[in-house]
Amino acid sequence: MTAHAKLPNPPISDPVSDLPVVPYEKLEEIFEDIRKHPVYDHEIHGCLNCGICTATCPSAQYYDYSPREIVQLLWTENLEGIYDAMQEKIWACAQCYTCAARCPFENSPGGLVMIMREVAIKHELPSVKEVLRPFSRVLLKVVSTGNQLAPNMITKEAFPDWGPNVAKVDAPLMLLRKAIPMPTMHTLDTAWEVNLKTSVELYTIWEATGVLKQLESVDENLFDVVSDVMEEKRDEWEEWLEDNEDEDDD
């Protein structure tokens, strides 16, 4: 049993369900957002239904997921099927892009899945929060530091199935980090030491590209934490700039 199976059932067109049917206009709106995505036309051109994508798909081996089905639903504009797939199936994709490398029509089912994930987030579909919950640590890290993984995230509590020891030499984590011969990596909170200006520049990118808005819609608490960190770092940077204004002789 996978985590997918535990998700709530999508409330569409089920004759025995009490849940309200999703209005057709809503389904159209979702599809429009997919179709208008800047790279949609780049990722889909048609379909020969040859199945080479599903043949080579790692997720199709373990889940009720088929990239060919995703392409077929989108190409035939099967609005209910698209909505249904956006509940669970799109989250089964492992994003390896083998499908795209093989497709004789040069479609990218993996790329289409990414578009559908973006749109699922935009529409705050019920599955999204559930699916992204375990990912929040990564989200926090990447948005606030520009690093996606940090040494202090790899703990035996977080990864009990990785064995009892994070490293085969028993020593405090920071000591082991300092024994790495690259000075940029003597860190715990980030994978490498990140320049203060770099983080501040990154925040500008997040703001300008709507990423913070996305984050707010999937996890408000996380958004608040990130906002605090951002403010702190920006203040720090401003302070440094003020302190160093006089010295700057350029």
């Binding site: 239904n49 040859c50 199945g51 080479i52 994508c53 599903t54 043949a55 080579t56 798909c57 199709a60 081996q61 088929s66 060919r68 089905e69």
Partner: peptide, 12 residues
């Protein structure tokens, strides 16, 4: 040989 029997809908 890796394929999908598209009519049966399973990777093989």
């Amino acid at each position: 040989v890796k394929g999908e029997d598209t009519l049966v809908k399973r990777p093989i």
